[in-house]
Amino acid sequence: MGIPNYPIHLDDPQLQGFYDGLAMGELRLTADPDTGEWVWYPPEVVPGKPDTVLEWRPVSAQGTCYTFTTVVRCLLPGDHATEVPFTVVLFESDDAPGCRVPGVLVDDDGVEPACGMRLRFRPVPVGDHVIAGFAPV
């Protein structure tokens, strides 16, 4: 299995918090500081609360796979022929059910990906950046 190599475009600076977390080995999601509820992905404006600034909070590295797919033909701009196949998962941390983080499946040792499988967060260095990875437990 390969790993996609595509630059991170942070057009919304708010999203820097996610990558700050990855650099420190943490998985972080955004929450409403008033209610404590997760608001994920972080929208440009919190619905009905235009003054609210979301907070980045760490979540458990343990969770489950909501769904997955193994990308054989990569549709990202550019040539990624040497990086396929790779498997993308949508991960739900045990601390934030329903909040899904996309990442690559790593250290799978031939284990077939499956919905509902237990996964553990693992940051993955790729070139000059770090992406979210998840390994079977």
Partner: peptide, 18 residues
């Protein structure tokens, strides 16, 4: 789409077929 560019494209989650 900024959310896709920041959170999805770097891990290869991109394009309708995916």
């Amino acid at each position: 789409e900024p959310l896709k560019a920041a959170l999805e494209m770097p891990v290869g989650f991109f394009g309708q077929p995916t």
